[in-house]
Amino acid sequence: MSLRFSVLASGSTGNMLYAGTDKQKLLVDAGLSGKAAEALFKQVGADIQEVAGILVTHEHSDHIKGLGVLARKYKLPIYANEKTWKAMEHLIGEVPTEQKFVFPVGAVQSFGDIDVESFGVSHDAAEPMFYVFHHAGKKLVLITDTGYVSDRMKGIIKGADAFIFESNHDVEMLRMGRYPWSVKRRILSDVGHVSNEDAALAMAEVITDNTKHIYLAHLSQDNNMKELARLSVSQVLEGKGFEIGRALQLHDTDPKNPTKIQYV
């Protein structure tokens, strides 16, 4: 009955998280095409037809690209807060009313034997929010697409058994890269994305003895590399006294390839 998950895809081209137990399965976001999503489910040995619903974080296309298609094809309920619904309804096509549900920010909803807690983040979307999954005393946190990690957020996510944590960019790569300054400024702002170093500093405040796995997520294709993200985060955490590779494991995520199913 363990809580388990796979980061099906993570990055600026599309984001999807599969999480569940023997009794209940959920999908967070559907940022790839329906065909790509189906292929990712097959790769991890999961059945998309067993999914009980799709939880939406925000309306940006890399999180909802395949949402309408999957919801219609598999008759999946969609859960999002009211502002996100208003922002994305015209982007996902017609979805039957009986498949539309409101999941407010700061609420807890139960899906079978999983309790899901939503919390707000700081990003340039209508009302972005991410999720904490609770099951049998275990805790899984998904937090990406935020310009910073506030004390409020840290209080909610602290002590998770596993984190899927944004480690979007290396600041120097971003500053020296090809993006126009307006885009760089947006990424570096409080409503942009968290850098490798800032992510690691936030992690250091929320990791406890319970924490066994951290997945570095939503890496920029232009302003980061897996090896650099891992090195940057490891250096900060090891400097804070954490033993990476022993009790605490760092994992990569990928925009096209799913992670192996991880049991919490």
Rank of each mutant, 00 (worst) to 15 (best):
V28D: 14
A46Y: 04
G14D: 01
D254I: 00
K100F: 10
L142C: 00
I48A: 11
G66T: 00
L174H: 01
S150I: 10
L188K: 11
E205N: 08
K86H: 04
V121M: 08
M1H: 09
S61P: 06
A39F: 03
K65E: 13
V149H: 13
F165N: 06
T97G: 12
E98I: 07
G31K: 09
E227Q: 05
K226Y: 12
Q235K: 15
M88N: 08
L40G: 00
K212R: 06
L231A: 14
T57H: 08
D113Q: 00
E197M: 13
H63V: 12
L228K: 14
K139M: 03
N196K: 05
T13L: 15
V51H: 13
G147C: 06
Q99T: 12
L201W: 13
L228D: 01
P258E: 11
S182A: 14
R178Y: 03
A136D: 14
R178Q: 15
S189M: 04
G239I: 10
N210P: 06
A37P: 02
R185M: 04
G147E: 12
A160G: 07
L55C: 05
Q249H: 07
L67D: 05
F101T: 11
V171N: 09
V206K: 05
G93S: 10
G14R: 11
G120N: 03
P255I: 00
M153H: 02
G155L: 08
A80R: 09
H58L: 02
A136H: 10
A46W: 11
E98W: 11
H58D: 12
L174S: 01
V183K: 14
G68K: 03
I207N: 07
H123F: 15
Q221C: 11
A9P: 09
A217L: 00
T259K: 01
Q24H: 15
A71P: 01
A229D: 01
Y148V: 07
D113A: 01
L70T: 03
L27K: 09
H134P: 10
V171H: 08
G241C: 09
F133E: 07
A71T: 04
G155F: 00
E238K: 13
K73R: 11
A107S: 13
D198R: 14
R185Y: 04
V116D: 08
I78V: 14
V206N: 05
K100L: 04
